[in-house]
Every structure is written in C-alpha cells, then in structure tokens.
Design a protein around this nucleic acid. Structure first.
Lengths: 216, 216
DNA sequence: CACACTAATGGACGATCGTCCATTAAGTAT
DNA sequence: ATACTTAATGGACGATCGTCCATTAGTGTG
C-alpha cells in the first residue's frame, strides 16, 4: 500500500524539518510585514508558525540567520515571478520592457505584504551585510534586462549615443518603479496600477517616441 | 555686565528644558538613522544626548511621543529647506520644477542621515498614526507646487488635456525623486547627483519637448 | 536667608528580549 | 523488541527593554 503519494516531502503532521524551516521563514516574513524588522521577535515568529521556542535556534542557529534566510527566499520569489513575465514577452525589446513594468506593478509582485517586507529589508541592508547581499539582487538583474532592451531600441535613433541613452532610460525606469513601490507602501488604498502603468509608459514614450509603447 | 547675550535661550550649561528637548529630538533622529526605529531604545537616545534616563518621560511623556515629535521636526526641516529653493526660483514654472528637483537632490536635503530617517519613518507610518500624519506632508506640499507648475506648462501644448498631463507629470516626477532617495539609501557611495538630475530632466523634457529644461 | 517651584537625576520595577539545553518523542536500523 | 539518531519541546537564564518616582539641585521670589 501507499504506493501513490502526492508529494514525497509532505507528511504534514509529524517530524518534518524541511516543512518547519519553510514555516519559520514564512512566519518571519509575515511578522516583518506586520511590525518591521526591529520589532520582529522570536516569540512573534514561533507563535505565528505554531512551533516551539527552540526551533529557530535548532534550524537556523539564531534569529539573525533566520532573517537572512528569509531575505534570500523573498528575493528568489520576486526574481522567479519576474522571469515568468519576461520569458512570456519574447524577444521584442519593447515587449520585454513593458513586461517588466507589468510584472513589477502586478498584484502578485507588488502588494501590501511584499512592499512592506521590501521596505524593511532595504532599511536593514545598511546595517546587516547578510541581508544587504540579497537586497541588491533585484536591481542587478532588472538592470541587465532593461539595459540590453533599451540598447536595442536606442540604436534605432542614434547609434553613437545609444549606450548613454540606454543607461539613462534604464536608471530612470528603475527609480520610477522603485518610487511607485514606495507610493504603494504609503498609499496602498488609493494606488492605481493602471494609472501607474500608463504614466511609466508615457515617460518612456517621451524618450523613444518612434516606438509604440502600447500597454495591453 | 552681561548686557549682550548672543542668544536669549542658550544658557548652555545648566537647567535649560528647551535645549534639552531639542537635544533629545536630535539624538533620537541620529539613533534612528543609525539603527532604524525598531532598534532605537531610550538608552541609546539618552546616551547620545548625554542626558539622564528620566528626561524622555519628563519632557515628552514617553518614548513614542518623542519619536512623533522627532518626525514632526524632521518633516518641518525638510519643508523649510524646500521652500528656500522654490522661493528663489521665481514665478517661471520651468524654473520652479527645476528648483524642486535641485532641492530634493541637494546634499543638504538628501544625504545619508535624511534618507535613512525618511525610510524609517515611512516604514513606521503604516503602524504608528502619529508618525503617519507627518510622513505625508512632503508628498502633499510637493504635489501642489509641481501640479500647478505643470498645469501652466501643459497649457502651452493642449489646453484640453492639460489637467491629465499635469497630473501624470507630477506623479511621474514625484515617484522618480522618491525612487532616487531609495537608490541613494541603497547605494550612497556610487550615487551621482548630477547624473540623477540630468536623467530626471531628460524624462521631463520627453513629456514637454518645446520647453527648455536646462539644469544650471 | 528661607521658601517654593521645577528641571534634572539615576536607580528600581516588572516585562520582554534572544539564547541555550535538558528532556521528550518520533523515525530508523539492528 | 532494542538501540540509536535526531526533530521537537518548553522552561530557565542573564541581558535589556520602557516606565516610573523618590531624590537632588538649580532658579526666582519673598
């Protein structure tokens, strides 16, 4: 019997270290989103996870290592989600850029929880080196994707100044998206994804007016 | 003797409640910049201020009230500094907008200390209502100034769509500046004020190409 | 000089922090 | 069944948290 098991790793009830780790990371991220990093305590985390007090020290060695692991997980989830959108865009540079915008402003990527967590980790990155390394991942990867796409586009205007134009466009788009995350954090209730998307597109269109920046 | 006193309120050494309050607020802001709000303790604050333990409770009633007062002070300082730049710009809408950009990216307004404090208060605004009220001041005032200036400019292109254009330009510029503060926070060492200024100007120029967006 | 007022002090309080470990319990091998 | 391994538990520990207040000391008035 028991030949068919839906998941090899999910025994659900008893003795599952891997599941416990994930539970702790998830509970840590939820707590950070709710109270910020400074007010995130081991008591809050283990209460939310429904586990016992010693688990954090057992599986991660301490609270700070758990938070670092949580930052890593959070960064990876963002990156994976982004990649899905970019892959679906194909090879057209305009489509790629629009897909990044669409992804970064989607409710799956940018929401109440993620903006709060992101904000907390950004603040902690100045002090905590472990968190800082994962905090920069997003920028780095985004910058690569956008810059190469903008380079291709800028070449249609003036090949000589294309590198500078692409660099400026990349930076400008990145800070706009970054600023919109902050705006969402501050005014989540009144934030409009469609308005945000339209305005970013309008700004990009001002730089490269011969291309069609149609958001679909 | 002692007819001439440089400042009426500065006795410097003994018994100066007003000076003590300012000292506490300043020490609180420094501590927030260094460790974030969650890790800001009364011990760190009074150590930095060089005052005794009971002063916070005596002058502010508690730690949280001190932090609220600190947020208020910080917001006011930013607002005052901004006003200086805007007033100097005169009545030309382009000059006003450029002055806001210049002010927001100046080393006096945007620096290591201010970006960290701002970031900390932004994060706390979601939980602490007292801090939240001051946290929104910046956006509100900036929005008013920018929107009326952009309205004037947009009227030179198409009076019918001017309100929407102005609104979009205002929002886009605000999120760009916001994003640049975050970029400064994350990468203060490599951040270039001149590059940032040039790129913002370039984006705005893309929206209103008939105007001259010369940064001086 | 004596008195009232209040800024300023710093230690004590209970609560809560993160860490650690002796103990229990579950899974596996012999 | 027995021995072994290890996930999981939860209480105890010293350190530190914010608050509070009895006390000290500086200032102005009679």
């Amino acid at each position: 019997m028991s030949v068919s098991e839906t998941k090899a790793t999910s025994k659900s009830t008893k003795r599952n270290p891997e599941h416990s780790k994930k539970l702790l990371i998830s509970a840590a991220l939820d707590t950070i989103a709710e109270t910020g990093i400074g007010d995130t305590t081991v008591t809050k985390i283990i209460d939310r996870a429904g586990l016992s007090r010693g688990m954090i020290h057992l599986h991660f060695g301490g609270k700070s290592q758990l938070l670092t692991a949580a930052a890593k997980t959070f960064s990876e989830v963002y990156y994976q989600e982004l990649e899905v959108y970019v892959q679906a865009a194909g090879s057209d540079p305009v489509a790629i850029i629009l897909s990044v915008i669409k992804a970064d402003l989607s409710d799956k990527v940018m929401n109440d929880r993620s903006t709060r967590i992101w904000h907390a980790f950004r603040g902690a990155a100045g002090t905590d080196p472990g968190i800082a390394s994962f905090s920069n991942t997003r920028d780095k990867r985004l910058r690569e994707i956008l810059n190469s796409a903008f380079m291709e586009i800028a070449n249609d205007y003036d090949a000589k100044t294309a590198p500078q134009q692409a660099k400026a466009a990349t930076y400008g788009l990145l800070v706009m998206l970054e600023g919109m995350w902050v705006d969402y954090l501050a005014n989540a209730r009144s934030f409009s994804r469609s308005d945000a998307t339209a305005i970013v597109s309008k700004f990009i269109a001002g730089l490269f007016p011969n291309h069609v920046w149609q958001v679909k």
